[in-house]
Write a protein that binds this DNA or RNA. Structure first.
Lengths: 344, 344
DNA sequence: GGTTAGCACTCTTAAGCGTTGAGTGCTATT
DNA sequence: AATAGCACTCAACGCTTAAGAGTGCTAACC
């Protein structure tokens, strides 16, 4: 595979950046004008022909300028990621600290707020994926009498997530009894991840049953439901700035995006793709996730919440988006989010 | 003001229904074909001229057919509302009962689920507005230790809404102390609406302070925050089926809708418009709510939640939407929702 | 008087067609 | 290797023309 020398890289980036700015095919003459590169248009043309041959750019039609291909964008993005541009996001910083430092919020709301701000500044659709339910560490569980035979279970995680779940029992218990059950479970499961708790419950359950009184056994049995079912609230997908829907996309694409985001599988898939790697990643062309999202890109970065769990926050926009500005922006937001979540 | 005789009504409705079905201007000849009305196109033309003069229909251009005006749609809708068409929504019924009867849900989730289903069947954007916070009746309040000086307050309403709120205190309290505070407040405020509680707190507070011990006084003071601030979760706007975004609308309109829905004021305004009147209402052309939503209509119906509070559920679609099908659908959903919420 | 056939008129839509201009690839030259 | 020159291609634009849908009006009809 032929590699790109310095000049070709420079011209390729010039084409892509120009196309991002102007959204028109870029011609050879334009490059000589805009970038005082000291070459004639004919030379640029030769280079362009080579770049096209290598698959980085293409022509919409014979007599048009060049447009970046996905491969082109990927190259462009990778250079940007290497550069680690620490562009001035001080405005964003201020807004973020201002909004996120208000103390009356649980972590879920903080993450959502971060996505909101990111959407506001990027003018694109922002999304935040909370950590996987499995990795969440239980801090506290509390049962509240809800109706005659229904109990509201409130779960608080070490990371600051809060989740409600209503469970139905086969008979009525007093609040006192429920409090006892809470204490027992708190003592037993405090500090463990949901994953481990789940295993404990399914595995050891029959052993404990004999040891403790009937009430608690019964409650544990029902608790199984709390921990085994998907505990939706914790994995709630957070989406923000739908009003910042991109101008670029067709109705069909927008529908696809929203449908995808409503679908939990998509988010999990995405998080899975991210996991392992740290920092900011860019997916140019999202067809490997959903075929119809071919013309869209995702700039996304992981954040940590103080414990071991990882989430992700990022934006969805057109493939032709201003990566130079947006990559540092997403990166910055994720860092700020991590900082604030660990500070608490 | 000249009134419409039977024939004119019939022709007007034929035009509107045809236009809704086909989304093209409707000509006189078309009407004679589709509806075996026993009149020639010339006669239809005369009637059309009259209907246009009266403002019910209009021509996009000289040689085009007729298109309904907003006035036309309003007339059409009012006849449909009179008719009380009880069209077959058995499929919707099944889906609804199936989804809503699952017992593990709180009322907030049930309402959301109803909006989801409505969106699924209508193929439009569905929205549900929960009852006004003020009218909600407190059933239970519980404090859970969250962090050192932070407490998670969980509010459960008689209607089955659940709300979380984190409040910050000036010192640390033990869970035991928090439980005492919960009991005290439960005893004092159980069964009262948020509105009354709010008044009690702001009014009587200084009197009680002397009577009860310092801890509780302090907690009540902080409780003020729980009840006076907007308790967002309870008034959370519920929106569903963004993926069912209408084909009809321009990007600009869609942005407007989403922006509007993100804005709480809009929802409150809407609920206010609804309040007083029962049953299903149709707003043709939403420019009285937001100017830019001129080409959109809203079909919305109130639901009751067993107590005195009212919410609303409905859909947003193009002015040219299939009212004949959708009005009964919304009506039906609201009824089913009321039934299920009161049954519990 | 209401209804209808006939007809001229209007205006959109689509197709056809030459012109323009941007941008290219190729070749000969430096 | 870089460049100037040139013929070539093709989308975009404006123009004209033809077709067709639907109207309003008038005169005849029941």
């Amino acid at each position: 595979m032929e590699t790109l020398d310095e000049r070709r890289k420079k011209i390729l980036c010039a084409i892509i950046q120009s196309h991002i700015d102007l959204n028109i095919p870029i011609g050879s003459f334009f490059i000589t004008q805009k970038f005082s590169v000291g070459l004639s248009s004919a030379t640029i043309r030769n280079t362009m022909a080579k770049l096209e041959e290598l698959g980085y750019i293409s022509q919409p039609h014979t007599s048009a300028g060049r447009v970046p291909t996905e491969k082109g964008y990927r190259f462009f993005v990778s250079t940007l990621l290497e550069e680690q541009t620490l562009a001035g996001n001080s405005e964003l910083s201020d807004e973020l600290s201002g909004k996120l430092m208000l103390t009356e919020k649980d972590n879920g709301k903080i993450v959502k707020e971060a996505a909101n701000t990111l959407s506001l500044f990027s003018h694109y659709l922002a999304l935040a994926i909370p950590p996987k339910t499995e990795d969440i560490v239980l801090k506290h569980i509390k049962f509240i009498k809800y109706e005659d035979r229904k109990v509201l279970a409130v779960l608080v995680s070490e990371e600051g997530m809060i989740s409600n779940k209503i469970i139905e029992l086969d008979r009525t218990y007093s609040q006192k009894q429920l409090d006892n059950a809470s204490s027992y479970l708190n003592g037993k499961f405090h500090g463990l991840t949901i994953k481990i708790i789940r295993e404990e419950i399914t595995g050891q359950l029959h052993l404990d049953k004999a040891a403790c009184d009937r009430l608690i056994a019964n409650l544990i049995a029902l608790c199984r439901e709390v921990f085994t079912s998907e505990t939706e609230d914790l994995t709630l997908n957070m989406l923000s700035g739908a009003s910042n829907l991109p101008d670029f996309a067709t109705m069909k694409q927008i529908k696809e995006i929203l449908r995808a985001i409503e679908d939990k599988q998509f988010m999990l898939k995405l998080l899975h793709q991210m996991s392992g790697s740290q920092g900011t990643q860019v997916f140019v062309g999202m067809e490997h996730i959903i075929p119809s999202l071919r013309e869209l890109s995702l700039v996304i970065s992981t954040y940590k919440d103080g414990k071991q769990a990882n989430g992700a926050i990022g934006i969805i926009g057109p493939t032709r988006m201003n990566y130079k500005k947006l990559i540092p922006m997403v990166d910055h937001t994720a860092r700020a989010l991590t900082r604030i979540l660990t500070e608490i």
